[in-house]
Amino acid sequence: MEKFEKFTGVVCPLDRANVDTDAIIPKQFLKSIKRTGFGPNLFDEWRYLDHGEPGMDNSQRPLTPDFVLNDPRYQGASILLARENFGCGSSREHAPWALLDHGFKVIITPGFADIFFNNCFKNGILPIVLDAETVDELFREAGGEQVQRITVDVENQRLITDYGREIAFEVDPFRKHCLLEGLDDIGLTLQHLNDIRTYEQRRMQEAPWLFGIH
């Protein structure tokens, strides 16, 4: 995973609550053999007027004009703003894969579904929980004439808005460490590389038949 560095990005305001994983990436796209390439089908049912299937040329499909992802102002947005219980439903990891593939690195809501919240960290996305009032304010600012940009500083656990306001956020110290160092579960395990090697050395003595092909 890439190290999560301080960045400034455009906020895309998705004014909906209870966005479930089937809305994030509908089930017909799960047959894919890839973990990338889900971006064009992120929020497929909301984003396009027709029914999406794998293998379609998405650039040719009719867009839902008033869906926020299609608004020219929010192209290239990397911060998604939404309402409570974001990511509920199935545990599919395709949901964070789709968000990431589209370019979202941070999701700000008043609350997330549990498994989705964990899956975000596994895939290098930072989910931020803010109180409903602050989220309301951010919606007002992001939906205005001016595009709202926010600077995300994980190190200091701060968001800095274009309006110069600083908002503190919580993040579990261990998760923070992993994001900053770019560690996923595999990265973490590989920190114990020497333990694994030592174990293998010992086992090769004790049970050599478990190694190599005889």
């Binding site: 990891e93 596994k122 579960d185 595999i186 395990t189 590989l190 694994i196 293998e200």
Partner: peptide, 15 residues
């Protein structure tokens, strides 16, 4: 699961 398959491929271990 698939994440664990990847974990085993990369580390030969499972959490």
């Amino acid at each position: 699961g698939t994440s664990e398959v990847e974990h085993v491929l990369a580390t030969q271990c499972l959490i």
